[in-house]
Design a protein around this nucleic acid. Sequence first.
DNA 1: GCGTAATCGAGACGGTACGTCTGGTCTTAAT
DNA 2: ATTAAGACCAGACGTACCGTCTCGATTACGC
Lengths: 208, 208, 208, 208
Amino acid sequence: MSMQQTAEGMTRPAGRPRSEKAEKAIIDATLDLLGEGIGVSELSIEAIAARAGVGKTTIYRRWSNKEDLVVDAMATLKPPIPLPQGASVRESLVTYLKVIAEESRHQRTRCIMNIALSDPDRHPRLAERFREVALEPRREIVRAILAKGIETGELRGDLDVDIAMAIISGAMMWQTKWVWPGEATEARLPERIVEEALKGFRQRAAEN
Amino acid sequence: MSMQQTAEGMTRPAGRPRSEKAEKAIIDATLDLLGEGIGVSELSIEAIAARAGVGKTTIYRRWSNKEDLVVDAMATLKPPIPLPQGASVRESLVTYLKVIAEESRHQRTRCIMNIALSDPDRHPRLAERFREVALEPRREIVRAILAKGIETGELRGDLDVDIAMAIISGAMMWQTKWVWPGEATEARLPERIVEEALKGFRQRAAEN
Amino acid sequence: MSMQQTAEGMTRPAGRPRSEKAEKAIIDATLDLLGEGIGVSELSIEAIAARAGVGKTTIYRRWSNKEDLVVDAMATLKPPIPLPQGASVRESLVTYLKVIAEESRHQRTRCIMNIALSDPDRHPRLAERFREVALEPRREIVRAILAKGIETGELRGDLDVDIAMAIISGAMMWQTKWVWPGEATEARLPERIVEEALKGFRQRAAEN
Amino acid sequence: MSMQQTAEGMTRPAGRPRSEKAEKAIIDATLDLLGEGIGVSELSIEAIAARAGVGKTTIYRRWSNKEDLVVDAMATLKPPIPLPQGASVRESLVTYLKVIAEESRHQRTRCIMNIALSDPDRHPRLAERFREVALEPRREIVRAILAKGIETGELRGDLDVDIAMAIISGAMMWQTKWVWPGEATEARLPERIVEEALKGFRQRAAEN
DNA sequence: GCGTAATCGAGACGGTACGTCTGGTCTTAAT
DNA sequence: ATTAAGACCAGACGTACCGTCTCGATTACGC
C-alpha cells in the first residue's frame, strides 16, 4: 500500500494492527461509488468512509489523498482480457473489439473507464496508473495480433504498427463514446472498423 | 440564451434590461477559469462572479445551474476550422489533422476540450452541446473531404464513410490524449495516420 | 418634507410633479409595517415599496435613508391627549396614566412606541423627533397638572417638578414595559403609583 | 448551554468533545460586538465567527439562531451589584442609584442594556432572560433595602413595595434614557429622586 | 400641440449576509 | 497504535434584500 509497508521479517510495530477488513471495505466502497457514476472530483472521502462504515481517519492514515486511493482501487481491477485466438487478423481484431464493446456495456466498467479517461491533465498519476493496468495490457493484445499478422504475411511488412493500433482502438473508442454514445454501440461496429482499416480507403486502381 | 428569449416584435419587458456586458463578462470569466485548468466540478459560481466583477444574482438570474452556464459558454466558441483545400484527399486530411494538433497545443482549447470530452455520462447536456458546436462541424469537414475523394474516384466508392471518419479522428485523438500525451503529439502523427488509413493494413497480394 | 420644500410663490420646478398619493401611500405603508411589529432595523424599503405599490426609487427620491422616512412618518401621528380636568391632582394624574395605559394596549401605538423608545443611541434623530412629537407634549400635561397642584396648595411648594414628573411617568413605563409586561398592565396600577408618589415612603412619625 | 447538556454521570458522547475555548471566544465576540453598539438585528453570525476566529458551523452547532446566542451571552454577565449597607434607606438607595448611573456610563454595559431594554415584543426570550439575569437581581436589592426600612420603622408599614420599587428604578431609567440622555445623567439625580420619593409630593398640612 | 423634463413603476445591478452543507484535519475514549 | 465518532475551520452553495441604476411610459408646463 501507499504509506506503510512493513518489510517481511521486521518486528510488527507496537499497538493495534491495522484492520485488513477496513482496508478492503474502503477499496470496495470506492469502486462502488465510482461505479455508480460518481466522478473523481465529486468523490468524497466522507462518502467513502460512510459507505465503508469506517472513520475518515482510517482512510487518511493509509492514503494521503483521494487520488492515491483511487489509484490503488483501480489497481485491484484485473485486466482479464485473453488474447483472441482467431484464425485470421480480421477475426481476432473483431473478437477483441467485441469484448471491449461488451465491457463498456457494463455500468461499473463503463464508469470507471470514463473516470480513467476523464482528464489526464487534472489527475496525471491516475491517468498513468490507468495506462499501466488497463491500457497497455490491451494495447499489447492488439500489438500481438498485428505482429502475428505480419509474420504470417497477412499484413504488410512495412505496417506502422503503432498507428495501426491507434486506428483500431481509437476508432472504436471515438465512435462509442462520442459519436454514437446512445446507440448501444451499434452491434456491427467492430466488423465495420476492422473491414475498413484492413482494406484502406483508397481505390485499388489508384494503387497501380 | 437559456432562460430569457424575447421573441422578435414582442414589447420589451418592464424594468431595466439585462446587461449584455455583464453577460459577456460572465461567459468570459467562465471560459477563462476552465481554460486555466479548473474542472467543471471545481468551478464555483462564486469564483466566476468574482472574476467577472459581477454579483452572484446576476449569474443565477440567467442560468439556473452551473452546467447551463458552461454549456452556453461553450456555445460561444466558434468552430473556426476552414475546409482544407488540398490537391488530394491525403493532403487535405493531413492539413486538417495538423490544425487539430495545433489547436490542442493551446492551453485554453486544450482544457476546454478536456472538459467537453471528460464525461458524457456525468454532464450529458454539456456533452450534447459540445457535440453540436465543436464535434459535428469538424466531422462535417472530414465528411466533405472524403465525399469529394469518392467523387473524384480517389477513394473507393463503397467506402464506409462513418467508419472512415471515426478512424481518422479517433486515431488522432486516441494517440494524442492517451498513448503519447506528453510527447508533444509527435509532429508527423497526421501523415502517418493518413498514410495507413488510406493504404489499409493488408498486403496488396492478398487483395488479388 | 425632508428634501423638497417648494416655498410658496416660487415657480414650480419643470417636469412631472411628485405624486402626493404615492407619498401618502409610502407613509401609510411605513406606519402599517411598524404597527405590525416590524422594528426599524427589520423594516426594509423594499417591503415598504411593495406594500405601498410604489417603486423603490420613489421612496429614495424623497428620503435619503430609512430613518428620515420613519421620522416623517412619526410626525404625522397626532398627540391627541387632552389635559385631564380632574378635581384634584390625584384624580388628574390617575386619569392621565389611565389614558397612557389605554394607548399602549392598542397594537399600533404600542409598536410605534416601542420603536421610538428602542434605542436612542442607534437612531438618535428618530429619538429626538419622538421626544418632540410624543414625549414632550405628554410631559407638558404632567407638568401642568403638578403646577396647578402647587398653585392650589395641594402639593408642596418646594416640589422638584422634574423629578416628580420622572417618578410618575417612569414608574408607569418601567412597570408596564419591564416588570409586568404580560400582565395586561394591571388595572389599578395608575392609582397605586399616584398614591405612593403623593404620600411618600416615609413614616409620618419620622417627619415630626 | 442551549443544545447540549450532558447530565452528570452520563458517559461522554463519542467523538471529539466540543471546544470550550471556541465557545468562550464566540460569547466574547458576541458581547464585544454588542458592546460596540451593533444592535441585535445588525449583529451577523458571520461577523461573530470572524471575530471569534471560528467557523460558522461551530456557532450553529451550539445555537440554532442568533437570539439564543445573544441570550446565552447575556447570561454570562454577572450581576455584581452588592447590597448597599447604608445607615439609612435614603443613603442605601442613593448609593444603589449611583452604581446604576456609573454602570450606564460604560460603553459596553450601556449598549447591552439598550439591547436588552430595546424591545420585549420583538425578542421576548431575550427580554425574559435579561429580566432574569439583570433586572430581578437588581430589583431584589431595592426590595431588600425597602424591607429593611419598613422593619426599622423608617418607612411606612403599609408601603406598596412593588410600586415603590417601580418609582425608584423607573424614575432613574426614564430620566436617564429619555429625558436627559445627553446630559451625562446629571450627577445629583439619585439624591433628588430618592428625596422626592421618600417625602411624597403632598403638603404635610394636607396629611393632618 | 409639442418639446422638455422630472416623475413614475419595474426590475437588473454589484454587494453582503444568510443558514446549510461538505471538504479535509484534529482530538477524544475505547479497543 | 489504530479505531469510530464527531468537532474543528474553511468556504461554496443558492436565497433574500440592500441601495443604486437604468429603462419605457406618464404627466405636467412653457412655447
